[in-house]
């Protein structure tokens, strides 16, 4: 710990070092930066952070982070209610939203099944998904989970629970990355891409899922 002539500074530095990736020297640099700013500006900085934490909510339908009871996707009348994309966390929602290709709604599980980490289906937002499928007239559930053992376990579990509803369950395609070279693709991915090959017409991306 560096020595400070002011306890106020020392306390502020300590708080900044609690952030991921911030060491003490970086923290001090940030504190000194704030010290040089107008008091008003620093107040605004603090208020925004406090308000963000205080006012943030989880969408009561899809569990995405949201400013309101319903998130901006769920409350958007233009989004297809009949297709739900299941993801692990809200970072995945951001990633998929950035592609601008998906027009349905989401369901954030809040994790994936991994008994080693003590996470079973009970810890995830599974029941609310089943409820939505039952009540919302859902036609398709798209599983957009990582192709790991834990992701695959979750897909297996959910598709089993969804079976009685007789809806379509799909998963995102797995295979050779865009711009990737075949010879540098690992064998497992390549083998899978060949096993689950698609007719060429389907390979041309449709602009909408509908």
């Amino acid at each position: 710990m560096l020595k400070y002539s002011s306890k106020l500074i020392a306390d502020a530095v300590t708080e900044f070092t609690k952030l991921p990736g911030i060491g003490e020297k970086t923290a001090l640099r940030l504190v000194i930066h704030l010290l040089k700013q107008d008091k008003e500006k620093v107040k605004q900085f603090g208020d925004v952070v406090t308000k963000m934490r205080h006012d943030i909510q989880y969408c009561k339908t899809c569990h995405n982070i949201s400013d309101h009871e319903l998130c901006s996707v769920c409350s958007n009348k233009m989004r297809e209610q009949s297709i739900i994309c299941v993801v692990e966390n809200f970072r995945d929602v951001i990633a998929i939203e950035n592609t601008e290709i998906f027009r349905g709604t989401y369901h954030v599980l809040g994790g994936i099944i991994s008994p080693i980490d003590g996470i079973g289906p009970e810890q995830l937002n599974v029941e609310s998904l089943l409820m939505r499928v039952k009540e919302q007239g859902v036609k398709e559930v798209l599983m957009a989970l990582s192709p790991t053992i834990e992701g695959d376990t979750t897909v297996f579990y959910l598709s089993k629970r969804l079976q009685p509803f007789g809806i379509t369950v799909t998963t995102i395609a797995r295979g050779v990355a865009f711009g990737g070279e075949l010879e540098y693709t690992d064998e497992l991915t390549l083998a899978r891409s060949i096993a689950t090959r698609v007719p060429y017409e389907n390979a041309l991306v449709k602009s909408s899922t509908s």
Binding site: P115, I116, G118, G120
Partner: peptide, 19 residues
């Protein structure tokens, strides 16, 4: 994972073991 699931089931009998 399988062994952890078996342990989980022993700790909490309500655990779903369909996985």
């Amino acid at each position: 994972q399988r062994n952890s699931l078996l342990k989980m089931k022993a700790d909490k009998p309500a655990t779903d073991i369909s996985m």
